[in-house]
Amino acid sequence: MASRKLLLLFFHPRFEDSRVNVKLTEGVKHLSGITFRDMYELYPDFNIDVEKEQSLLREHDIIVWHHPFYWYNCPPLMKQWLDLVLEYGWAYGTGGNQLQGKWVMNVITSGGDFHVYQKEGRNRFTHREFLNSFDQTANLCKMEYLPPFVVAGANKLSEEDIEENMIWYQQILHFLMKEPIDLDKLKQVDNFNQIKSAEWEHPFYKTP
């Protein structure tokens, strides 16, 4: 099968202060088949080139929204991007089918560990539940919303932990771009963190 082209949109207003995101992005931005865009570097004034962004979306098969998890949501530039780029009549609504069938996922870093993102935890909901608005955005635009990849407890991770997450991130993106995937089965997973690489061959590979 032909490789899928992946557009990685990275939104972080304080990128230079995030050792986790520096490592994660360094590990993936030069991979073959990926178009990497540091959105705060491109649009420091929030003056988004809507036509350019829409053109890039049309040219790619998979879109990754990589961002820190600010107040259970995304940074302000990403919200601006969603508001302006996903236009009525283009991304959704009457005649809005430009993104139909494309895949999209969130990659997030959060300060809280997984145990505080549970029904019984301090935050009362899981990361995946907080991401439901992005899932619905994808649904409205007729896109396929994939399980997120969550780097939790980011402020407490050791260098070894960060390296492990970076390698896992590389494997996920390679998997999405290169492999025949049973999408229905993959979408039943809460997040990519639940999948061990050894399990990929069986429930998620599509039989030719």
Rank of each mutant, 00 (worst) to 15 (best):
A2G: 03
S3D: 07
L8P: 06
L8E: 02
L9W: 05
F10Q: 01
F10I: 00
F10N: 02
P13S: 13
R14L: 02
R14H: 14
R14T: 15
F15R: 10
F15E: 02
D17K: 14
S18N: 10
S18H: 14
R19T: 07
R19P: 02
V20W: 11
N21E: 08
V22D: 01
E26K: 15
E26A: 15
G27K: 06
V28S: 03
H30F: 08
L31F: 07
L31G: 03
G33A: 08
F36T: 00
F36Q: 00
D38Q: 11
D38F: 15
L42W: 01
L42G: 03
P44G: 07
N47K: 11
D49R: 03
D49F: 02
K52H: 06
Q54H: 11
S55R: 15
L56H: 13
L57T: 01
R58F: 03
E59R: 15
E59G: 08
H60F: 08
I63Q: 02
I63W: 03
V64L: 09
W65Y: 03
H67S: 11
W71H: 14
Y72M: 10
N73M: 04
P75K: 12
L77P: 00
D83F: 13
V85M: 04
L86W: 13
L86A: 11
L86C: 10
E87V: 00
Y88T: 00
W90T: 09
W90S: 04
Y92C: 13
G93V: 15
G96D: 06
M105I: 01
N106E: 06
N106H: 11
S110V: 05
G111P: 05
G111F: 09
V116I: 12
Q118D: 04
K119E: 10
K119Q: 08
E120N: 15
E120Y: 13
R122N: 06
R122P: 00
R122S: 09
R124K: 15
T126Y: 06
T126P: 02
H127A: 05
F130D: 09
N132E: 03
N132S: 08
S133P: 08
F134Y: 10
F134T: 08
T137E: 05
A138Y: 02
N139K: 03
C141K: 11
K142H: 12
M143W: 05
M143L: 04
M143T: 15
E144D: 09
E144Q: 11
Y145A: 15
L146I: 15
P147T: 11
P147A: 06
F149C: 04
V151N: 06
A152H: 01
A154Y: 00
K156A: 09
S158F: 04
E159W: 00
D161Y: 03
I162N: 00
E163L: 09
I167T: 02
I167L: 06
Y169K: 07
Q170S: 08
Q171I: 14
Q171K: 15
L173R: 05
H174Q: 13
H174K: 10
L176H: 01
M177G: 12
D184H: 12
K185Q: 12
Q188W: 01
V189C: 06
D190K: 14
D190E: 13
F192W: 14
N193A: 06
I195D: 03
K196A: 08
K196W: 02
K196P: 00
K196D: 02
S197K: 12
A198T: 15
A198W: 05
W200S: 05
W200M: 11
H202G: 10
P203N: 07
P203E: 07
K206A: 14
